[in-house]
Every structure is written in C-alpha cells, then in structure tokens.
Design a protein around this nucleic acid. Structure first.
Lengths: 209, 209
DNA sequence: GATTTAATAAAACGAACGTTCAATTAATTC
DNA sequence: GAATTAATTGAACGTTCGTTTTATTAAATC
C-alpha cells in the first residue's frame, strides 16, 4: 500500500501535533518513540517525516505553538483599564484558564526545555520572558501607586507564576472543584500575596480596628 | 585490567549517586545513558550494575533518598511550639533551605516520577503526601484558631508548595540575592497569602485605620 | 603466604532508536 | 483520461541503548 484513501496533509499534521502533545506529556519527550507516535496517529513512522524533518523539530513546533497561543490569549484577555488590581486579576484568571485548558501542552513546554537545541531554547525562553514581563509591569505599577505591598517585583512575579501554573499539577477537570472555583480562590490568594487592599478587605480591616 | 588500586565499594556507590543526580538533573533520566554515567564516575558501565541492578533501581534509590532526607530535615527543624505562625514559618524556611541546598536532587524527584514503575511511583508519592500533610495540619490549626484567613486548606497547601518549591527553578547560588534574603521575602509572601495577622502587621493596620 | 572475596574491565547481546530511501497509490491538474 | 503531484508504505541503515557474561586483579581473611 501507499497513499491511503481520504488522506490529507493538513489533517495528518494536526493529528501528529495532538498525538505528540499527549504522548510527550504522559511519557516524556525522550521516552516517546517516533514509532509509538506513528501508531497513535494511525500511520507509519516514515510518514511523520513529511511534516517534521526531525523529532526535535516536532518538539519545537509544539512549544512555539503553545507560547504563541498563550500570547494570543493574553492579548485577547488584557483589559483596557489601567488599574493594576483589575489587570492583575485578568492576568491570573487568563493564566489559569489557559493552562488548565491546555494542560498537556503546558506540561510539554515546561518539562522538555532541555531537549531543545541552544538556539531554540533561547527562542522559547524569550517568548516566555515577554509574557512574564507583563506581570512584572503590573506589579510595578501597583507598587508605585501604593496599591500593592511588594518587597521585590521580580521575586513576587516568579512566586506568582509558579503558584498559578502549579494548578495543572494537581487539578483534574471533573474534580470536586470547578475551574471557576479554583480560579476564584487563587485570585484571592494572589491579592493577599501582593498585599492588595480591595474594597472588601478595607471594610473588614476598619471594622476590626 | 580488572579491579583497580584503591577501589572501594562504598565510595563508588556514593560517586554513582552523586554523578547520576547531576546528570539526570541536567539531561533527564531517559537522556542519561549508563555509559555516560560510568564515564562521569570514571568506571566501566558494567561496574554500575554491582550497585544498582537496573537503571530504574538507581533512579528509585535517588528519589527515596531525597524524600527520606527531606523528612529527616523537617523532623530536625520542626519547632516545639504549637503556634501555627511559628510552625508555618519553620516549614517554609526549612523547605526553601533544603530544596536550594539539594537543587539537583529536587529536580530529579520532581521531574522524573513518570519513569518509575507504578508500585514505586506510589511509594514515592506516599512519602510526599506525608510531608505535605504536615503543612495542611499547620494551615488547618491556624485557620481554626482564627490566625489565618484561608478559603480551602488543601488548595492553599498546594499553592504554597508550588510557590516555595519554585525557588529552585530560578535561584542560583551567588545570585544578586542571598538564600537568607530570598527566604525572608518568601516568608512574608507566605504569611500574607494565608492571611496571617502578625504583630507587626496588626500595628500597621491600626495605624492606618 | 595461600585462599577467598570484592571490585572492576572488556567484550558481546539482542532490541530499539531516529532516520532514509525506493516504490506505490490517491488526488489533482490540464 | 493522461500527466503530475501529494501522501503514504515497507524495508532497511547504522547507531546506541540497557544489560549480561566471563575473565582478571586488588584487598581481606586465615
């Protein structure tokens, strides 16, 4: 046999990306063989090489796609308001929603960086840095306006990112908690962590004093 | 040649563990070959099999050793006080100090769980669960005594663990920040995150009101 | 100092790996 | 409907992998 009935390049490439994301997330990049991936797609191993010249090209394509989707999602979710509290809330909510929605893809991008060539590693890290820079800007603005009580903007940004990305480590859709509930709780923790004074909290503080 | 002058089983095993921890942390478990490890130790690949029957046995030994060391460190650092604030501070400080000190080992234990057999994975996860249970107990006690403002003990514990373990992702000894400085900042963020009312903060709140 | 045991080297095993190549068939173009 | 292009197969290549076996030498024992 050779070309199969109904075969289509576009569909096959998408199927490869999907299957690879799942397999790498589950077993790891090194542990996934090209033959295993081909079997998952329903194709022979050689067919993969029409779409991705090497295994590493495939990994890089997945990671770049993930980072581009993340940047796009944030552009879409970014609020027009200049209020740091509103912007921080939007950042956290978009981050959690995106990463839960794309759990496997996130796992790949976070765990397999060391399998990238130095140039490609740098490329992905730059995309990540640009995204994280947005959070630091929000924190800096909030601190300058006296809305946040922050010791170190860089440290706080890293702590927040680790915390909110960590959701995907334990969260499973259909758990006792809904995505919305988890997101709301993480938002409250975030606001306390940065020392934000919300209207509610101020009322509580005054009542207490 | 065969047995070499000055060769010693105890020393060789320790050298294998050290070298393996470094190599797996850098390149990943699957990517590290037994020949590469042997070369790092300064020995032939076959010699490794006198100490660890299989590659997976070696990985499991490293992970179990890491978790045991973590449990020991916490037993050592655990305060006699029953005050949740003091206990939480001790937990966070010990956690950060331990993980920074054993960065490579931590990376191995956090990233390579999927290379373990199901039984061994369960074993390591149980050790981890026991350690994290201590944190949940502290948070629960603090919440019950009205010292912490926490929505969900389990969620908060996970968020805290992700946050304070994340230090090792970006922290490099000899950075612009000292371990003590980072630890102090993370402790403040922790206390705010759980809504702890410290003496200092209460004074500040009252002065503000 | 002979004997036993511990530690290692050297070579080899079969299996699996990423990748390539030539052949073959489906879909498209003219 | 013939010619061309796109998609895929099946088989093979050389390499590397984890692991085993056998032989050899250093250290420990008596």
């Amino acid at each position: 046999m050779a070309r199969t009935t109904g075969s289509d390049g576009g569909k096959t490439e998408a199927a490869i990306r999907d299957a690879a994301t799942g397999l790498i997330a589950r077993f790891g990049y090194e542990a996934m063989s090209m033959r295993q991936l081909a079997a998952e797609v329903g194709v022979q191993a050689a067919a993969l090489y029409r779409y991705f010249p090497t295994k590493e090209d495939l990994l890089f394509a997945l990671m770049r796609g993930h980072m581009e989707a993340l940047a796009d999602a944030w552009q879409e979710a970014r609020p027009s308001s200049r209020d740091p509290v509103i912007r921080l809330a939007a950042y956290v909510e978009n981050h959690i929603a995106f990463h839960v929605r794309r759990r496997h893809s996130t796992h790949v991008s976070n765990m397999e960086l060391r399998s990238l060539s130095p140039e490609r590693l740098t490329h992905i890290l730059k995309m990540r840095a640009a995204y994280e820079k947005e959070l630091r800007a929000i924190l800096r603005d909030g601190a300058e306006q006296g809305l946040f009580a922050i010791e170190d903007t860089g440290l706080t940004a890293m702590a927040l990112i680790q915390m909110i990305t960590g959701v995907i480590v334990w969260f499973r859709p259909g758990d006792r908690l809904s995505i919305a509930g988890v997101s709301a709780t993480y938002l409250k923790m975030t606001m306390r962590l940065v020392g934000a004074k919300t209207a509610t909290e101020e009322r509580h503080v005054y009542a207490h004093a």
